[in-house]
Simulated scan of single mutants.
Amino acid sequence: MQSQIVTFLIKCPDQKGLVAKFTTFFYEQGFNILSCQQYVNAMADRYYMRIRLDAAEAEISKKELEDKFEKVATTLKCTWSVHYGKEKQNVAIMVSHTSHCLYDLLERQREGTIDCNISLIISNHNKLKPIADMFGIPYYHLPVSKETKIQQEAQIVGLLEEYTVDLIVMARYMQILSEDFINKYPQRIINIHHSFLPAFQGANPYQRAYERGVKLIGATAHYATVDLDEGPIIEQDVERISHESTPKTLKGIGADIERLVLAKAVKCHLQHQIIVSDNRAIVFPESGE
């Protein structure tokens, strides 16, 4: 195997000796362990591990590694995935009218703080095409109505397949995706919700937050599921406000939080820091990536 970082994400029923079994396995295959993060959910009796390995001295192919680990995983009733460091992921961004999250992701990708290929931008409006042109990224304007939703989503799926997209980011794409579409990409669609879920789901949350006189506003990034705004939460943040805040000022504060929350969620996904268990996202912190 070429010199690279290999990341395993593992979940299984909790039991004694798991750390020793996993670390011994990787040692015997010639890997150097760079970091080993773990979490035990005692209430669910579940064990989670994120382990990063240096493959410089490992004389084993990817297929051999995966076949050998599958035997261990079967014995321990594990669900697992493996990710190889040199495999840069292809990302599609979906937007509507609002530009702040799009700008932020494009700039972070250009600066290298988010390591991926932003392959294309898809929108149901043509308003943000100048931004795509500025960054030299293909922009696809695919209008949608209730009558054309099935055809429009089929066009989107075709583009995602054409560009071999690994991750879809809904950067304020103000359309509800169909169940069929979401089920094609489980845990591969990240949505930013301009509210601190589960409060103020749906549209126009800042107006409703103002009407309730809230003292905190925030944003939530989560994986999209068929249950609207109820997918596994990856990242959230809040900021304190006062009675003097108007819906307009709340929206401006919220936009800043949305940028940070979405960028962090995307980065966590790209760096393989997330294990989804039921409807919870176990998010491991960065470990020297």
Rank of each mutant, 00 (worst) to 15 (best):
S123R: 07
L53P: 01
D115I: 11
A132S: 09
D45P: 00
V82K: 09
E64R: 08
N124K: 03
V165A: 12
D54A: 12
N90P: 01
L160N: 06
H83S: 14
N124L: 01
H97D: 05
T148Q: 11
N90K: 13
K68F: 02
M49H: 01
L142A: 07
N90E: 11
P143D: 08
E70I: 02
E161A: 15
K88A: 10
N124P: 01
Y84E: 03
S145Y: 03
K129S: 07
H141A: 07
V72P: 05
V157H: 14
Y47K: 04
S119M: 09
K86S: 14
L160A: 08
K149N: 03
K129T: 02
N90M: 05
G112C: 11
S119P: 00
I137V: 11
V144W: 05
H97C: 03
K86F: 11
S99K: 10
R50C: 09
K62T: 08
S81R: 13
F135I: 02
T79V: 12
S96V: 00
T75C: 11
Q152F: 01
Y48G: 06
T113W: 02
L167C: 10
S123K: 06
E162D: 12
D67A: 13
T79A: 15
V95M: 07
A42D: 13
N124F: 00
E147P: 01
L128W: 04
N90T: 05
L128M: 11
V144L: 04
Y84G: 07
K63N: 12
S123N: 08
K62D: 13
H141N: 08
E70T: 07
T98H: 14
K127V: 07
V144R: 02
E57M: 12
C101L: 10
Q152I: 00
D104L: 10
Y39Q: 12
A42R: 15
E70A: 15
A42M: 10
T164D: 15
V91K: 09
D54W: 06
V72W: 11
V157Y: 06
V82Y: 09
L105V: 03
C78P: 00
S81Q: 15
K146A: 11
K71S: 12
I122D: 08
A171E: 09
E111A: 15
V40H: 14
F135M: 03
I131F: 06
K88D: 04
K88Y: 03
N124M: 01
I168E: 07
P143R: 09
I122W: 09
D133L: 04
L65V: 07
R50W: 01
E87F: 06
T113A: 05
P143T: 03
A55P: 02
K68C: 03
G158E: 06
D133M: 05
Y140V: 03
L105H: 08
L106V: 02
I60Y: 13
L160C: 09
I156S: 05
H100W: 05
M94Y: 04
Y47I: 02
K63C: 00
A55Y: 05
H83Q: 12
Q152R: 12
G112S: 11
T74M: 13
H141V: 03
A58W: 06
F135Q: 06
N126Y: 02
I114G: 11
